[in-house]
Amino acid sequence: MDNAYLIETIIKVVVILLIFSALAGIGTYFERKVLAFMQRRLGPMNVGPFGLLQVGADGIKLFTKEDIIPTNVVGPIFKIAPVITAATAFMAAAAIPFLPSFELFGHEVHPIVADINIGILYVLGVMAVGLFGPLLGGMASANKFSLLSAARAAAVFISYEVVTGLAILAPIMMVGSLSLIDFNNYQIEHGWIVWSQPVAFVLFWIAAFAETGRTPFHLIANDHEIIDGFGTEYSGMRWGLFFIGEYANMFFISFVIPILFLGGFGDGSVLGAVALFGKMAFFFFFFLWTRAAWPDVRPDQLMWLCWKVLMPVAVINVVITGLVMMF
């Protein structure tokens, strides 16, 4: 491993970390604005022009708030849980190609930290580890509502991991590789995978909502209980880390869906890169859009949907794909 490679990787890691932490903050601004406009409100208006500096104000508030560790919690686990959520969200970004490779100062830059050959498996796996954030946080909180929320989190994530895996299996069979770069290159030759695998696309998209814990599957931190589920006992930056993790996850999933199904960044032209950002923006917007439009489902309905509808459909999809590929 030569030094240039090491330095390049470190720079890439730092850039991704900075950009996506900032994006997670700006994401909250967009979420508030979009939700507000859809509900005929104005959203944040008072801090800075159009409330743009609200993000900064929130950041200052989160950083300077007292970090309260309640009396009966299991200290070390309680403290580490939010870090797990945020860290795994960013770790997942390592295998995502954000842009086509480009020349910078006569040096070929691949905007992906590590093009490992198990890319998609790694992304989904690490995102799934993020489950331990809400789960451990809720269990260590010494709060019944947090505990219930942790139980829901476990149930949701375990069920939807199955759907995600099975849905993505059919495209993987077609591409014959787990690397996201290979997915992209396959789609240059054969056209977007969404045309050949529409069912897998819809299933993966539905599962992405569960994966990020967004409405209509927002029952992990169940707002209807008025309190914040597993985050109830958290304060200050620890709570903020849960938040950053959630938003970073939304951004990364919004990148992964178009790369897997909608042609990725295309043939490497600038247009392709812009298109990828456009697609990413649409999926991110869709997360906010559904939050304004749809109600949350009950845990039992969610289980019903996963095990009785989505999983059989995914299995049938895999079987049919296999048969078509065989003959």
Binding site: F37, M38, Q39, R40, A292, A293, W294
Partner: peptide
């Protein structure tokens, strides 16, 4: 039916008929 709900909120956003009183 889910798309009806999506359309309703999008329509309100496009109309931009804000009823907030600052």
């Amino acid at each position: 039916e889910l798309f009806v709900g999506l359309w309703v909120v999008l329509r309100e956003m496009i109309k931009f008929d804000i009823h907030t009183i600052s």
